[in-house]
């Protein structure tokens, strides 16, 4: 149905009206404040202080010179470098195993997905109790097998790895879910063709069919995982407060501290701009790579 010109005009007006509230709110609540961050990052505005003046890129210079922030960025990178690959590869392996178990697969899928729905703050405190230096289950087990007890969350050389472990615990289930969904879209025909061509089990089957067919999902999972790992906040805020001695301080926690504890809005805004750069960069990379793949595929 093409409709008359009047019809079309009415529909255009309806479209504008229906989209207007969302467009306005998007501008007001997302784009305006997000650009505001960019502006604030160029000022020395402090919350509660009257007025502010332009200081150019000084906040960015301060940020790069600040040992604590440098440590925080380094910790974030290390944390992501551990959690992302481990949780992705482990999830891929588990997904392939689940796919092969048949009826019990649903049970494992449910189990691995539980951490995604569970409140991380509660689960972090549960992990804290499990890892408690004196009565935690892990240390009880360590002591029972004649090993020394560990202060998992207060030992500066261990704390970040402990958080990374909890991060993997949280991320794996989500990634398993995505991989299982991806695996289910691979046509059965392809596995059968591979079986006749000689790749009927184990690694050769994985290399010939599973891995290449999962490539788009893997790319997506990688980007999502990277974004979520560099956004880690809860476990730090609940379990370590960035300590001991800054050993677990990461970018979002630092940003939160600078903005809402020290009210150094200028510096925090500069950090927020950097954070946006990292996250948006990953998303754009995803889109570009995916686009290129689908054009060549």
């Amino acid at each position: 149905m093409t409709g008359s010109t009047a019809d079309l005009r009415a529909r255009r007006r309806a479209g504008l009206l229906l989209a207007a509230p969302a467009a306005l709110l998007l501008a007001l609540l997302l784009f305006l404040p997000s650009s505001g961050v960019l502006v604030l990052s160029l000022t020395d505005y402090r919350f509660g202080m009257p007025g502010a003046s332009w200081i150019g890129l000084e906040n960015y210079a301060r940020m790069l010179a600040d040992d604590r922030i440098r440590q925080s960025l380094g910790n974030t990178a290390l944390y992501a470098a551990i959690v992302a690959p481990v949780s992705i590869l482990l999830a891929l392996w588990l997904a392939v195993l689940i796919e092969a178990t048949g009826r019990l697969g649903g049970f494992f899928r449910t189990v691995f997905f539980l951490p995604v729905t569970a409140t991380l703050v509660a689960m972090a405190t549960a992990w804290e109790v499990v890892l408690h230096p004196s009565f935690g289950m892990v240390n009880v087990a360590l002591a029972a097998s004649g090993l020394e007890k560990e202060r998992f969350l207060s030992d500066p050389s261990l704390a970040l790895y402990t958080l990374a472990f909890i991060g993997v615990w949280k991320m794996v289930g989500y990634n398993v879910l995505l991989f299982v969904a991806g695996l289910s879209t691979i046509p059965k025909d392809l596995y059968e063709a591979a079986a006749i061509d000689g790749a009927d089990r184990g690694w050769s089957r994985f290399a010939m069919v599973t891995w290449p067919m999962l490539a788009p999902v893997t790319l997506f999972v990688t980007v999502i995982t990277l974004i979520r790992t560099v956004s880690e906040f809860e476990t730090i805020a609940v379990l370590t407060n960035g300590g001991p001695n800054g050993a677990t301080e990461m970018v979002l926690y630092t940003l939160y501290q600078e903005a809402f504890r020290y009210f150094d809005i200028g510096l925090a805004s500069a950090l927020a701009v950097c954070f946006l750069g990292i996250v948006a960069g990953a998303s754009i990379l995803n889109i570009v790579l995916f686009d290129r793949r689908s054009r060549h595929g």
Binding site: L26, F31, S34, V37, S231, F260, I265, V279
Partner: peptide, 21 residues
């Protein structure tokens, strides 16, 4: 508007949080 929605998907909540606060 559609472009804006796509861009908005990439902005983490912590970025507009400061001016909103």
């Amino acid at each position: 508007l559609f472009g804006a929605v796509i861009v908005a998907l990439m902005i983490p909540m912590q970025v507009p949080a400061i001016p909103l606060y």
